[in-house]
C-alpha cells in the first residue's frame, strides 16, 4: 500500500515502507538534498522540515505519520535563482560556514515566523535551541532570522 505525500506543493506516491523515517523518503526517494542526516535521534535538528507548518524532526518521524499534512523542505522556500525571504536573509547575513545545519535552521525559523512573525532574540534562541551548529554561526543565524522578520539586527 503506497502512501500519498504532499511535499513542497507536489503530490507523491511513496514506495518506501510506512515505517521508513520521512528523512529517507525525502532524500533517497524524492531526491531532496536540503534535509540532512545528523543524528537519527532528534537531537540536532539537521533534518528539520515543516509538517503542517510545524517544525518536525524528519529522522524520527515515520512517513506514515505525516500524511495527509503538507511537508515543506528548504527546497520549498525558494531556489538559488529565486531564494525565498528567509533564504535571502541568510544570504544577506552570510549566515553559513559549512552550511550542513542551515536547511534545518531555516525550516525551524520558518515555523517560528509562522507563529510569531516578529520574534525577540530570546524567542529565536528558544525556538532554535534544539538545532545544533558546530561552525559557530549562531549569531549570524539570529541576525538572519530577525532580518527576515523585517527587523534589521
Amino acid at each position: 500500500m503506497s502512501i500519498r505525500l504532499h511535499v513542497n506543493g507536489t503530490a507523491h506516491e511513496v514506495r518506501s515502507p510506512p515505517d521508513t523515517p520521512l528523512l529517507y523518503v525525502l532524500r533517497d526517494e524524492l531526491g531532496l538534498g536540503g534535509p540532512k542526516f545528523g543524528c537519527g535521534l532528534a537531537q540536532c535538528g539537521a533534518c528539520t522540515v515543516t509538517v503542517g507548518g510545524k517544525a518536525t524532526r524528519s529522522c524520527v518521524t515515520p512517513v506514515s505519520a505525516v500524511a495527509p499534512n503538507d511537508v515543506v523542505t528548504v527546497e520549498g522556500l525558494g531556489t538559488e535563482d529565486h531564494p525565498g525571504a528567509l533564504q535571502q536573509a541568510f544570504i544577506a547575513e552570510q549566515a553559513a560556514q559549512c552550511g550542513y545545519c542551515i536547511p534545518g535552521m531555516i525550516m525551524g525559523a520558518s515555523a517560528l515566523l509562522r507563529e510569531t512573525p516578529h520574534p525577540t532574540d530570546a524567542q529565536i534562541r528558544s525556538a532554535l535551541n534544539g538545532n545544533l551548529c558546530r561552525c559557530g554561526t549562531h549569531l549570524r543565524i539570529l541576525r538572519a532570522v530577525k532580518r527576515a522578520a523585517g527587523e534589521r539586527a
Binding site: 531526491g31 531564494p83 544570504i91 552550511g99
Partner: peptide, 23 residues
C-alpha cells in the same frame, strides 16, 4: 572587500553538492 561567498546560495536553498548528496 566583503565579497559574498559563492557557496552560500546553494547551501541555504538545498542543491549544494555535498558528498552526502552524491548519487
Amino acid at each position: 572587500k566583503p565579497i559574498a561567498r559563492v557557496d552560500i546560495p546553494g547551501k541555504v536553498t538545498g542543491p549544494f553538492p555535498y558528498v552526502h548528496n552524491l548519487r
